[in-house]
Each structure stands twice: as structure tokens, then as C-alpha cells.
């Protein structure tokens, strides 16, 4: 298949994810408006940061009255998980350093998972297509949230607060079908993250949970020996 076909596949497979992203964008926009961010800053944040977890962290920490550098550090820590994710996708990217750096901006949670072909290999076109589907959904959702400013209570009452974790759960479910190692890594990631969330912010807790990937590798080696 050509890259264009792969991009189309990525867009098609991301329809539900884009819908979830849109809803989360509405939530972010509404929350940002409620926190006095105005009309422009939330939309520019979604255009340039394109990361729900980091943007929610920024919003929450700034809203708590903490120093600006703390808010930025929290958001950056949460997004540190993109470092190993971009590293893993690097062999699939093309061109010189600058082009690779730009192509790597398509690495977001859902796109990275959808582009994963197993055995650490990634489909570049699917990665692009998935990000292309989600980015406008995220920005448009933010804009709608900022303009309409629906109450967070309304979003929760209609059950829309479940959209993002449910979609991550579906992606996880599909990943766990690959192998026993994947199931062990998932269990480890869940337990470690849950424990770390008691004492750390979400970003470092997620990074700690990602270390479960090492446990899974050890299990694979043991099974092979």
C-alpha cells in the first residue's frame, strides 16, 4: 500500500477516536473558559500543544494558583511519555533531521497505538492519518467548548466524561490480544501507575507505569529459555 493509502487508513480507523477527541476538546474549552483563559488562548493551546493530558495539567495547576513554571513543568512531565513513543516510531519516519522532527509531532497517544504494527514496527502513513483526523477534532472541539461553554456538570451528566478512558480501554483491549507479554505489561502498567498516582502527579506516574514494559520483556525471555 502507498503512503496515501496508509494515511486514508489512519484517518478511517481514527473516526471514533476523533469523535472522542472532539468531546474532550469541548470539555477542555469549557473548562479553560471557566478558568478565565478567554477565547484565544485555549484554541491556540490546542493548535500548538495538541495534547489533552498536558493541557488539562496546565489548566489545573495554573487554576490552583501555583507558579507558572510549575504548571509548565507538570505539562512537560506528562508529555515526557512522548519521548520513548517518538523514539520507537523514529525508524518509520523519513527525511533529514528537521523533517523527522516535524513528522514526529504526529506522535500522539491514539495515533501511536493505531500505527503500531506489532514487534515495535510502526506504519508512518497510519500515524499521519490518525493525527490528521484527531488534530482538527481537538481544535474544533476546543473552539466549540470555548464558544458554547457548556457546564462540566452537563458533560458528566450525559456520560461524555467516559469517552476518552473508554477509548483507551478499547485500544488496550486490542493490544492485549497480541501476546501474554502484552497482558503482563498492561497489568504491571496499571498497578504501578495506580500506586504512583497516590504520591506523584499523573505525568511521572504514567512514566513509572511505562516501566512495566521492561517486566514484560523479562517474561518473554523466560518463556523463550
Amino acid at each position: 500500500m502507498s503512503t496515501v493509502d496508509d494515511i486514508r487508513t489512519g484517518v478511517r480507523r481514527s473516526t471514533a477516536l476523533a469523535a472522542s477527541t472532539f468531546v474532550l476538546g469541548v470539555t477542555f474549552g469549557a473548562l479553560a473558559r471557566a478558568h478565565g483563559w478567554g477565547l484565544g488562548a485555549p484554541v491556540v493551546a490546542s493548535l500548538t500543544i495538541f495534547s489533552g493530558s498536558a493541557q488539562f495539567a496546565l489548566l489545573t495547576v495554573l487554576g490552583s494558583g501555583a507558579a507558572a513554571w510549575t504548571a509548565v513543568a507538570s505539562a512537560a512531565l506528562i508529555n515526557l511519555r512522548f519521548f520513548p513513543m517518538a523514539l520507537s516510531a523514529a525508524p518509520a519516519l523519513q527525511g533529514g533531521r528537521i523533517r523527522r522532527a516535524i513528522e514526529a509531532q504526529t506522535v500522539v497517544d491514539g495515533a501511536w497505538v493505531l500505527a503500531h504494527q506489532g514487534e515495535g514496527r510502526f506504519n508512518r502513513g497510519v500515524l499521519f492519518g490518525s493525527a490528521l483526523a484527531q488534530w482538527p477534532a481537538w481544535v474544533t472541539g476546543t473552539l466549540v467548548g470555548v464558544v458554547l461553554a457548556p457546564s462540566i456538570g452537563l458533560l458528566n451528566a450525559t456520560g461524555l466524561d467516559v469517552v476518552f478512558p473508554a477509548f483507551f480501554a478499547l485500544l488496550l483491549f486490542d493490544e492485549m490480544r497480541h501476546s501474554r507479554s502484552a497482558r503482563i505489561a498492561a497489568a504491571g502498567g496499571a498497578v504501578i501507575t495506580a500506586a504512583l498516582l497516590l504520591v506523584l502527579p499523573a505525568g511521572p506516574a504514567l512514566l513509572g507505569g511505562a516501566a512495566a514494559a521492561l517486566l514484560g520483556l523479562r517474561t518473554t525471555n523466560t518463556a523463550q529459555s
Binding site: D109, L171, E175, A186, T193, L197, L200, L206, G209, G216
Partner: peptide
Amino acid sequence: GVIALLAPALLAGLVISDLLGPR
């Protein structure tokens, strides 16, 4: 080998993080 298992580990963490939140 490690990277192949990053997706399930991170996804599980993301689900848990969304469900539980900080502390």
C-alpha cells in the same frame, strides 16, 4: 522488545490515570 510492550503498559496507565486522577 521493550518498545513493543510500551503500548499496553502506557495504555493501562492512561486508563487508570483517567479513572483515578492524582491521589
